[in-house]
Write a protein that binds this DNA or RNA. Sequence first.
DNA 1: GGTAAACACCTTTTT
DNA 2: GGTGTTTACC
Length: 725
Amino acid sequence: MDVSAIINPLNDAQRLAVSAPQQAILVLAGAGSGKTRVLVHRIAWQMRINHIPPQNILAVTFTNKAAREMRGRIEDLLNISTRSMWIGTFHGLAHRLLRQHAKQARLPETFQVMDSDDQSRIVKRLVKTMNIDDSKWPPKQLQWYINAQKEEGVRARHISDHGDPYQRQMLAVYKAYEELCERSGLVDFAELLLRAHELLRDNRELLDFYRERFRQVHVDEFQDTNSIQYAWLRLLTDGNNNLFVVGDDDQSIYGWRGAKIENIFNFRQHYPDHQVVRLERNYRSTGHILKAANTLIAHNDSRMGKELWTEAGEGEPISLYTAFNEQDEAYFVVEKIRQWIKDGGLRSDIAILYRSNAQSRQFEERLMTTAVPYRVYGGLRFFDRLEIKNALAYLRLASNPHDDASFERIVNTPTRGIGAKTLDEMRGQARQQQRSLWQTAQGMLEQRLLSPRAAGALQGFLNLIVRLGQNCADMALHDLIQQVIESSGLLEFYKNEKQDRNEARVENLEELVNAARLFDFDSLSQEDGETVSELDIFLTHAALEAGESQAEPEQDCVQLMTLHSAKGLEFKLVFMVGMEDGLFPSLQSLDDIGRLQEERRLCYVGITRAMQQLFLTHAESRRLYGKDSYPRPSRFLREIPADTLQEIRMRASITRTPGMEPTRQTALSGGGRYRPGQSVGHEKFGEGVVLQTEGEGDQERVQINFRHAGIKWLMLAYAKLEMLG
DNA sequence: GGTAAACACCTTTTT
DNA sequence: GGTGTTTACC
């Protein structure tokens, strides 16, 4: 293969980035500008032109999906195997390093990765056993605190409480948490990154080895890196200038979970010889959509600066619909969807995007009643399901009995007579003696500290785990799992409980056996013939990649998801719904300029998902948390230029005050509609105040409290009402 | 030890 | 209003 195959499919800016000399490169890639393409072609360039062998290439992404896609595209482009290339998520690669150098990382060989659910259980338990007032120190907050510290690279021993009792308590929990994880051989997500950083930092030889090895480092979605991830990258590339990062400061929407948009700015100081390449040509959207996005995002300050353009032409204007309430909003959206389908469009080209998951409901209902197939993204993924986590906990305990998180989870699941009292006793002792629950349980049995009934139950449980542990080595994994769900009583338990959701649980457990049978160990095993068992590989996979949320995604259906999960995707027809202050931007962001700017970036992400048509909708009244609210239209709507927008009139006759043309401004501020509190006049009943409204179109009715005539319901279409005040 | 009533809460989410 | 969690009671 020659250079042309790598270079020809690229535009000038992309070419500049791909063929840039060996130095630190920052590619500012706008939405839809061919970001992944540049990354893939850069790697191809390095291999073909600079003759860098695959094992010297590192590529880091944030999601497993992105990593898979990149691997696939490199293989397609170069027609080679990428097995020896390190392509993965920050967490996945960190995990790989830690497995290979467990000893130097001061980790047990059999350490297991725990997810945030396990983590929160541990923190909750610590709060209990340490007798901490959970109203002052909510476990959630403690968990957040621990993760935030780790993401900044800070260990408990580095922190001083400055005599502040609140700090001191948080610190005490952090310390106790660290000790417990150490003792249980458990590593949380943030710990993976922190350990991997410390591993390289504290082992000069290892660091030199990997610096030598990763002659080219590539990073996707650089704007989403947090402090420890960036520190790790710097460690690997310091002095080598072999860092190629791609990102978009305007699409940084994960600040709330530690992503540091500053990294993109700091990059320029840290790598003085760097080169910046901007990808501004957009291949996705029409001119109107891009103009809206550009104008909106220009309201943010401290940007790197970037303006998307296209040769695709202006296209359809963006449509703005003011709905009466949330049902009307759903009704409108689904009508437009049906029209699209009737015109021969694909359902899978349509996305409904919302700020928060709770908003999906009314759209689901409407889609359901009109029999339009849809798929909601988000929610529980396969390995996150309760029954799956329970089954996995048995396996984890069998692999490592000191895993306290798993012990807690299943010691009495299904119930086998080991109650809260016995457990409290065990927790207290375990903490006192700095031993695992497993050891404590054994000790208590030996010393006959328990009632005969509890002792019998506990002994039975321990025996079960030991038996499973013995089978780990010489049983095929799927047989082992089959044995687990049977002999633990889990399968029996879910089969007997006659609830509809349990049927699915039984199915999921069977699916777990199947997943183990089909699991491809070869693709995930360590390159240097590590001693990691199949079981441990499978368990890590379950923690690091929780799997899809729904089984059969490849159907032609409408896509429903949050704006966050829409990042990186594109759809011909996009609805951004609930464009109201307090919803989007969210209530919590309204009074904080930094958060508001992140919301604006989120809006930018949403707009730029649309290829052909974009609908923005907001409702004048919305039931929120059981109460009626009358939100103002989102401030973002005012930041979109009017000449890209087209207002869609409401379906039925709306009584408007004579002479008041419904301009964009009045529609945006909700003028023209009757809402509670509005003073009205009626030729027969006189003056009154609107109490509530219901129905839509010519069915719309208004309840009015007339000063003299009392409370009456009036049909808007017939009653000649006049707005006052 | 299991169930039901009371209660608080209420973005966004990947690893 | 709906959900997940704690508490009270059988």
